[in-house]
């Protein structure tokens, strides 16, 4: 079987700088992951809070043997945000492009394609590889057969699939956290910081459906591809992303590592993840070629 690396995706929520720092310190010391993504993906207004801690956190992660990757903003507008992207490119670490602006900046040197880039087919994958991409995270909408086709066409590129966490469904210029509080993005008072796992959104008939995270809208359920790891590896997928949520991510990483290494049975693994995830439902609809919010009951 091919190698299988666990990767911790960028933290998408606006945790306080101290909470965020302590989270990464614990990841550095305890989490069995190969790669950790840093960098603000959702809102450039949040970045200054954590910037002072970044060098220390990156160094601690590197010292513990983890690869540090900087993820760029998912929606870049204006000169200031373009400068943020260029700044990341100069930090000496691998950079993951989440806006095409970053591909323009990174072209010609090794870089990663993030899940916010519209990568849907082999021609696009090959174009990215020509420009220096060495790794590509798949778009959340992609079904298993498309992931398989991309993995087959990958050449020297590594394919990464998100196997745990809320899926980012959209990005916008408008901040829905601010809007929900009667504010605008410019006067937001950083209300997104109130919801460590995203703000729950229900339908009129009280079905929990989405989670708002600043300018980003996410699935309510956590994607769970724990039962698909072997299938993904057989396709040639070598990297497995865990998207941080406000729960014990060290335990989640340990569980996925056990599953990848075949040290835990399928039912046990699902039961353990269920207890870690609390009341939030699981989803795997996109992977199954269905509506994204669906969950294949057979897997539980």
């Amino acid at each position: 079987m091919s190698k299988a690396a666990l990767s911790l995706g960028p933290l998408l929520f606006h945790w306080t700088a101290e909470t965020r720092r302590d989270f990464y310190f614990r990841i550095a010391d305890e989490a069995d992951v190969a790669t950790v993504h840093l960098g603000e993906v959702v809102c450039s207004k949040r970045a200054p809070f954590f910037d002072p801690h970044l060098p220390e956190v990156a160094e601690r992660l590197s010292r513990s043997g983890k690869e540090v990757v900087f993820s760029t903003l998912a929606l870049v507008t204006g000169e200031r945000e373009m400068a943020m992207v260029r700044g990341l490119a100069e930090m000496g670490h691998m950079v993951e492009a989440n806006d095409v602006a970053a591909i323009q900046v990174l072209a010609g040197r090794p870089h990663a394609i993030g899940p916010f880039i519209n990568l849907f087919n082999e021609d696009t994958l090959r174009t990215f590889a020509r420009l220096g991409a060495v790794r590509a995270a798949t778009h959340p909408e992609l079904p298993a057969d498309t992931i398989a086709k991309l993995a087959k066409a990958r050449g020297a590129l590594e394919i990464e699939v998100t196997v745990f966490g809320r899926l980012a469904l959209s990005v916008s210029a408008r901040c829905y956290h601010a809007r929900a509080h009667g504010l605008a993005k410019d006067s937001c008072q950083y209300v997104c910081g109130n919801d460590a796992d995203g703000k729950p959104v229900e339908t009129l008939d009280h079905q929990p459906i989405l989670a708002v995270n600043g300018t980003q809208t996410m699935s309510h359920g956590y994607v769970n591809l724990l039962g698909e790891l072997a299938a993904l590896r057989a396709m040639g997928v070598t990297r497995f992303r865990l998207s941080p949520q406000a729960l014990d991510m060290v335990a989640v990483a340990a569980l996925y590592r056990e599953a990848l290494d075949g040290r835990i049975g399928a039912d046990d693994a699902q039961a353990k993840l269920r207890s870690l995830a609390g009341p939030v439902p699981f989803i795997d609809g996109y992977y199954q070629g269905r509506e994204g919010l669906a969950w294949s009951e057979a897997a539980e």
């Binding site: 519209n118 959340p140 899926l167 959209s170 990005v171 916008s172 509506e291 994204g292 919010l293 669906a294």
Partner: peptide, 14 residues
Amino acid sequence: MAEGRCALSSYLTG
């Protein structure tokens, strides 16, 4: 939402 970068419809309909 930013066009081409929205999966809300596929999330509900596939």
